[in-house]
Simulated assay, not measured.
Amino acid sequence: MPEYGYFLSTEEFGPADLVEQARMAEQAGFQALWISDHYHPWNAAQGQSPFVWSVIGALTEAVSLPVQTAVTCPTVRMHPAVVAQAAATCAVMTGGRFRLGVGTGEALNEHVVGGPWPPVHRRLEMLEEAIQIIRNLFTGEEVNHHGTHYTVENARLYTVPDEPVPIDISGFGPKATALAARVGDGFITMTPDETLVSHYRKGGGGGKPVSGGLKVCHGLDREEAVRRAREVWGNQLLPGELTQLLPTPRHFEQTAPLVTDAMAASSFTCGDDAEEHVGALTAFADAGFDRVYVSQIGPDQRGFFDFYRTKVLPQVQGAAPASPGEGAPR
């Protein structure tokens, strides 16, 4: 049976809201947290972008749940040596309950420091080298590295966890999936694609964890929930490599006419039908995922957490349904 977690969206919520959502997630019965790592939101309708490492520090004081970035790009905006220090500190603060999720990133977040945005094959090379540097630094030994893309001189992390931080790699196509299988401690992908999971397992992933995430929009008015999902997260439905290449939120806003309510209705689970939400989660379980993280779109977070606590999580976790007043988020 998979573990079910909550996906905190730094693109859509500020720091205080994210911490409060984490508290409600723990009270509702979610078992872990994902948190996105963005410099920009995808569009103005989302409207936030707090620094993820500061928020994680607050989360460690607010809840006892494991935390993972989903995902950090450790190659352009931040040097891998700096990401290693941030991840090691988070692991110490969580008592070893932190995993580092990494990926090749998007121009939206990474090009802000200037310079060209590399093609995908170069970004995969950079990611593999970055992971090597980060793992070497997790040992607590001095690291000197003169590689193709990065230089590290006389670097040593003095604050490190007892065990190295696991590094899970995000992938949506065969090349990134192959890299995750070869060098990752786990695999992250965002659709319940059984074929992709199989390629990961056969390529070297073996028994390592596979994690997935989805966004839903719970609400009593399904049409309104669909509209909100399209307006706020329509960027997820853009074709091809647009999400990796467009450089600013303004450019994503210009693509809004490409996404219709019908597309959103068929792609996001919207409304208050518990069986539809259960089905969306179990699709990941059926595809072989070990961990599934769900994120609520929009401001009705308390309604979402109460709905999942009483109607959804008991079904997917195999527990008796909670009564409406029992353990309600406060």
Rank of each mutant, 00 (worst) to 15 (best):
N109T: 10
G240F: 12
A181W: 02
Y6T: 01
Q315Y: 00
A178L: 10
A87P: 12
A88G: 11
R230H: 07
R201N: 04
P164Q: 11
S295Y: 08
V82S: 13
Y6S: 03
G203V: 09
G114M: 08
G105Y: 06
C73A: 13
A130G: 09
Q21D: 07
F7M: 09
L281M: 14
L59W: 00
T310P: 04
F304K: 10
L157Y: 03
P257A: 04
H111F: 07
G114C: 07
A262C: 05
W42M: 14
A22E: 03
T60N: 14
F187G: 12
A25D: 00
T89H: 09
G212V: 01
D300F: 00
G57K: 09
P66E: 11
P164H: 11
P118M: 07
H218K: 08
G303Q: 06
R99T: 15
Q21K: 13
A45R: 15
T248H: 02
A262D: 08
G298C: 05
A87F: 07
P321H: 03
Y150P: 10
T89A: 15
A70L: 14
A70T: 13
G115K: 00
H149T: 06
E275T: 12
V82T: 14
G114T: 04
F98N: 13
Q31M: 08
M93Q: 15
A264Y: 02
